[in-house]
């Protein structure tokens, strides 16, 4: 078990360092001078040279990669060449809003998706199961930006029952929550469908296993079998998927934050792209990658903890 943990941890760090290297190299792979693109056509040579120096672009590529790695290993994301503010501060201001959004969506998805999946699995091939199947597949296929636009159009623009944009009044928690509802639902839609399908599939698989049949033969009540024995095991794959979920929610957050004009990582990266401010884009992407990889690592660990069989397999392998 310990070797597995160590291996998994080393891989995570390695992946993050590689991502840093890619992001540093990316600027050289594509044509054009990043400093010039950042400053626009009217910048003078002096300013361009200064910006190049600030972005470390005047140093050899190897040195740039080295500096980037050094910064990351010291927990620094660098400095925004535009404002001169440390990027840790800029990212630190944006990150909490995205995390709150992502976790609320994930919570919503679990609250709605799991019961839907359980219902489908306990009533297989009934009409309601089929309708649930169509609903969950359609939910999976609704991209977060379409969901977000529809919700905005219906509840904020047409019915005017929900606030349309922003975070709400500073310090006013109920107002913050009210502003969170539509974006969180928009992000959750896909995952409600996905979790419903996943829970249905794994619950049906578990229900076919011998130990469940043994319980049935022993005359235990259906309810007890479902909730005490079957559901517990059927939810294990869901845990693994939720790890991936956090990452995908981050991706969807780019759109949702933009549609609802919320500050966050998505807006930060998007604005960075619009103003060609590559250091900001790089810092944003790196932090998202970090969260994605960590969430996967945690989900993996939780998964091995919940299902001892996997633990054994992996130590052997």
């Amino acid at each position: 078990m310990r070797t597995y943990l160590l291996k998994r941890f080393v891989m995570t760090v390695l992946v993050l360092l590689l991502v840093t290297i890619y992001l540093t190299l990316l600027i050289h792979v594509v044509p054009g001078d990043a400093a010039k693109t950042l400053l626009g056509p009217r910048a003078n040579a002096d300013l361009i040279a200064k910006t190049r120096a600030a972005m470390n672009l005047d140093k050899p590529v190897i040195a740039q990669v080295g500096l980037a790695l050094w910064d990351v290993l010291h927990g620094s994301l660098g400095t925004d060449v535009f404002s001169g503010r440390p990027l840790n501060e800029i990212v630190g201001a944006a990150l909490p809003h995205t995390l709150i959004l992502a976790w609320t969506s994930l919570g919503l998805a679990v609250l709605l998706g799991v019961p839907l999946g359980v219902y489908s699995a306990t009533h297989p091939d009934s009409w309601l199961d089929r309708i649930t199947a169509v609903i969950s597949i359609s939910f999976i296929t609704i991209p977060s930006y379409v969901g977000g636009l529809f919700l905005l159009l219906l509840f904020a623009v047409q019915l005017k029952v929900m606030p349309a944009i922003g975070l709400g009044v500073r310090g006013d928690v109920p107002d913050y929550l009210r502003h969170l509802i539509l974006p969180a639902v928009a992000l959750a839609i896909t995952w409600v469908g996905y979790l419903a399908r996943l829970v249905r599939a794994s619950l049906l698989e578990v229900l076919n296993q011998t130990y469940i049949r043994a319980h049935m033969a022993a005359g235990l009540s259906q309810r007890l079998i479902f909730y005490k024995y079957a559901l517990k095991n059927a939810l294990i794959p869901t845990v693994a998927v939720l790890g991936i979920g956090v990452g995908n929610l981050m991706a969807g957050a780019v759109f949702v934050e933009l549609i609802f004009s919320r500050p966050g990582m998505g807006t930060l990266i998007y604005n960075g792209i619009q103003s060609r401010n590559f250091p900001v884009v790089r810092a944003g992407v790196l932090v998202v990658a970090f969260l994605f990889v960590t969430a996967n690592l945690l989900a993996d660990l939780l998964y091995t903890y919940l299902d001892p069989r996997i633990q054994l397999d992996k130590t052997r392998g």
């Binding site: 890619y22 990316l26 600027i27 991706a251 960075g272 884009v281 790089r282 944003g284 992407v285």
Partner: peptide, 22 residues
Amino acid sequence: VIFDSLQAFPAVILALAILALL
């Protein structure tokens, strides 16, 4: 390791980073 690291962040973010420069 390379495949893993390229999949370490959501495809949208990867695409955004590349398109920002391209």
